Computed example of a mutant assay.
Amino acid sequence: MASLGQLTAGIAHEINNPINFVSSNITPLKRDIKDIMEVIDFYRESGEKEFKPETKKEAKKLEEDLELEYVLEEVDQLLKGMEDGAKRTVEIVKGLRLFSRVDEQDVKKVDLHDGINSTIILLNSSIPGKIRIIREFGELPMVECLAGKINQVFMNIINNAVHALSDHMEKIPDPVITIRTKSLGDYVKIEIEDNGPGMPEHVKQRIFEPFFTTKAVGKGTGLGLSIVYSIIENHKGTLEVLTEEGQGTTFIISLPVYQNAPKYD
């Protein structure tokens, strides 16, 4: 996982430079096109007054052949698309950088909300549009943890919630994943709840076992929640699941605010 984190961080860094170049060039490009349009408008107005009828006819024909009105409209749409695409890519790169956090060996104070948000950004393309993500974030202190590992926890649990909802979309009129955070003094609590099909008791009892999976062959390793459980345990936290068949599922993560550092430094 550390190697994967380093690879992800490296890719994010490499993408960052060209996308910044594209982003920073869009505004001056829009300004330049606006200037060119002013010149075109000036020529059009002057031409109406000063061109001979034959020249006006030729100019009109040229505009029609080139579909000038359509071209100008398309330039506008292309620039908007480039701007939106660049912003989205910047968001993804930021998400990758936050998610990969190559400080795997160092416990550091981190903002857990950044980790949750970056995870949602990275999962965005695989979340069906019908699924709503609701964030009910409380005021959280900075939490000492291995950021990359905790982001792995968020990724796994949110991804499982997405799959639970996606596989039963026809039976759920309003599929929702709700993420709540709250501070409890020396601990913080993160709840990830879905209104999916829930789990029967015999499945609930085994979900943290290595290699146990309810997915079809080739769809899952059965290691995800087992690794998640180990990560939370190694952080001196707790992980519990509340679920009932037909009533959705809630994963509740409790993490201590402090790991190794003294409370008052």
Results as ranks from 00 to 15, higher is better:
Glu63Met: 14
Gly85Asn: 10
Phe211Arg: 11
Glu170Tyr: 05
Gly196Glu: 07
Glu67Trp: 01
Ala12Phe: 02
Pro175Gly: 04
Gly248Arg: 02
Pro28Ile: 09
Lys149His: 15
Ser23Lys: 14
Pro200Lys: 15
Lys56Leu: 15
Ala9Arg: 07
Arg97Gln: 02
Gly220Phe: 11
Asp186Tyr: 06
Gln259Trp: 04
Leu165Lys: 00
Leu79Gln: 03
Tyr70Leu: 10
Glu45Asn: 14
Leu4Tyr: 01
Leu255Asn: 11
Leu165Gln: 00
Ile157Cys: 04
Lys130Trp: 02
Glu69Tyr: 14
Lys80Pro: 01
Ile11Val: 14
Ala2Phe: 06
Ile121Val: 13
Phe21Pro: 00
Pro175Val: 00
Val75His: 11
Arg44Ile: 13
Asn159Glu: 04
Ala12Pro: 03
Asp35Glu: 08
His113Leu: 11
Pro173Asn: 01
Val110Phe: 00
Thr250Leu: 09
Leu225Gly: 05
Ala9Pro: 01
Leu98Gly: 02
Lys49Glu: 12
Glu193Asn: 08
Ser183Gly: 12
Gly95Cys: 07
Glu139Gly: 08
Leu4Trp: 00
Asp186Phe: 02
Leu223Met: 12
Val143Ser: 05
Gln205Ser: 13
Met1Arg: 10
Ile179Asn: 00
Lys60Thr: 14
Ile92Leu: 15
Val110His: 03
Ala161Lys: 10
Lys215Asp: 13
Glu50Tyr: 08
Lys34Met: 06
Ile26Asn: 07
Val203Trp: 01
Gly95Ser: 06
Lys171Ile: 02
Ser183His: 06
Glu38Arg: 10
Glu244Ile: 06
His202Asp: 15
Ser100Glu: 03
Thr238Trp: 05
Gln77Thr: 10
Ser100Trp: 03
Ile179Pro: 00
Leu66Pro: 01
Phe208Met: 14
Met1His: 14
Ile157Asn: 01
Leu239Glu: 12
Leu112Met: 12
Phe211Trp: 05
Leu242Gln: 09
Ile131Phe: 03
Asn151Tyr: 06
Lys182Asn: 13
Asn151Arg: 15
Lys263Ala: 11
Val203Pro: 05
Thr181Arg: 07
Ile150Gln: 03
Val241Phe: 09
Glu48Phe: 10
Gly224Arg: 04
Ser3Arg: 03
Pro28Phe: 13
Lys57Trp: 11
Lys215His: 12
Ile120Val: 15
Ile157Leu: 13
Met155Arg: 09
Arg97Ala: 02
Gln247Lys: 15
Arg135His: 09
Glu64Val: 01
Asp194Val: 05
Lys80Tyr: 06
Glu244Gly: 14
Ala12Asp: 04
Pro28Gly: 09
Pro53Tyr: 02
Ile177Thr: 06
Gly95Arg: 07
Lys80Gly: 04
His13Glu: 09
Lys263Phe: 12
Gly10Met: 02
Met169Ala: 10
Glu91Trp: 05
Val90Ser: 10
Val93Ser: 03
Val241Lys: 09
Ile26Gln: 08
Thr243Cys: 04
Thr221Gly: 07
Asn234Ser: 13
Glu209Leu: 11
Ile179Arg: 03
Glu58Arg: 11
Ile134Lys: 14
Ala59Lys: 10
Lys61Glu: 12
Thr8Met: 11
Leu112Pro: 08
Glu139Gln: 14
Leu122His: 02
Asp35Cys: 04
Ser230Cys: 04
Ile116Leu: 00
